[in-house]
Simulated scan of single mutants.
Amino acid sequence: MKTLTPSWKSSSVLRTATAWLALGLGGPIACSSAEEELERYQQEETQEAAHLATFDTLDFDVFTHQDWGRLQHSHAQDVIVHWPDGHQTQGIDVHIADLKAMFVYAPDTRIEVHPIKLGSGEWTSVVGIMEGTFTQPMPLPDGSSIAPTGKSFKLIMNTVSHWKDGVMTEEYLFWDNQSYMQQIGLAP
């Protein structure tokens, strides 16, 4: 699968800067402004690339291998997480508890690819493929459980994240819960 990156900004900024320089418009002031804009853009692109690399590590290593002690490398202590079922949490410890719960009944849950990755300033949007198999009892809030069906799932999911100081401060998770329940045999 091909990874998409926002190359349109680079060519636009470079064309603008080159045009100003080639035409000599505005003399040194225009040149300085174009150079400052190019430098600002390059810094933003470097930041976006760092965030996307951190996100790859988060999904491919930390999430997939349940290495929860490393979650603070990508998440703020007071991270706000919006889940596909509509609930929202605040704090890394609550987020870790929610993530751990996904592995109780599907211990082979994993994300190994990000076919689409986009960044813009302090925001990223990453599409991943989450897979696993319902092989263990699924605990319910009343203390009972649902017997495993042995069925596997493969979901397209999306995470939209806001970053500050190198970590996510807010995370929006999206996937089709109906499809998820159907795939693991809990919905028609």
Rank of each mutant, 00 (worst) to 15 (best):
P6G: 07
S32E: 05
I116C: 03
L99N: 03
V113D: 12
K117A: 15
W123L: 05
P139C: 02
V13T: 03
L140D: 06
A50W: 10
E45G: 03
P115V: 00
P6F: 11
R110P: 00
A50P: 04
G86E: 10
I111A: 12
R70T: 05
I146K: 15
A34N: 05
I116L: 08
C31L: 09
A50G: 08
S144I: 00
G86S: 04
E122W: 03
L99E: 05
T54I: 06
A17H: 03
R40T: 03
E131I: 09
G121R: 01
W20P: 05
E36F: 10
Y41S: 12
I146E: 08
Q43T: 09
A34Q: 03
W8Y: 13
G143V: 02
H95L: 14
K9C: 09
L58I: 05
G86A: 04
A17K: 06
R110Q: 09
S7C: 05
H87E: 15
A34F: 08
S12H: 07
K100N: 05
D61K: 13
L99P: 00
P28D: 13
L38G: 04
T54Q: 12
P139E: 00
Q136K: 12
Q42S: 10
I92V: 13
H75F: 15
L140E: 09
M138I: 01
A53E: 14
H82I: 04
R15N: 11
D98K: 02
I129P: 15
S74V: 14
V81P: 00
E112Q: 14
H87G: 12
R110N: 04
R70D: 09
K100A: 11
I80V: 15
Y41T: 09
T46V: 04
K100H: 04
A49H: 15
L52A: 09
A19D: 11
G27W: 07
F63C: 02
T54G: 10
A50Q: 05
S10V: 03
T64K: 02
W83E: 03
R70M: 06
E35L: 12
I96N: 04
H73V: 06
P6T: 01
L52Y: 14
V94K: 07
S12G: 06
W123K: 08
D56A: 04
W83P: 01
V81K: 04
S74Y: 13
R15Q: 14
L25W: 01
Q43G: 05
I92P: 08
S144W: 02
P107G: 02
T46S: 13
W83V: 11
G121H: 02
I116A: 03
L140T: 01
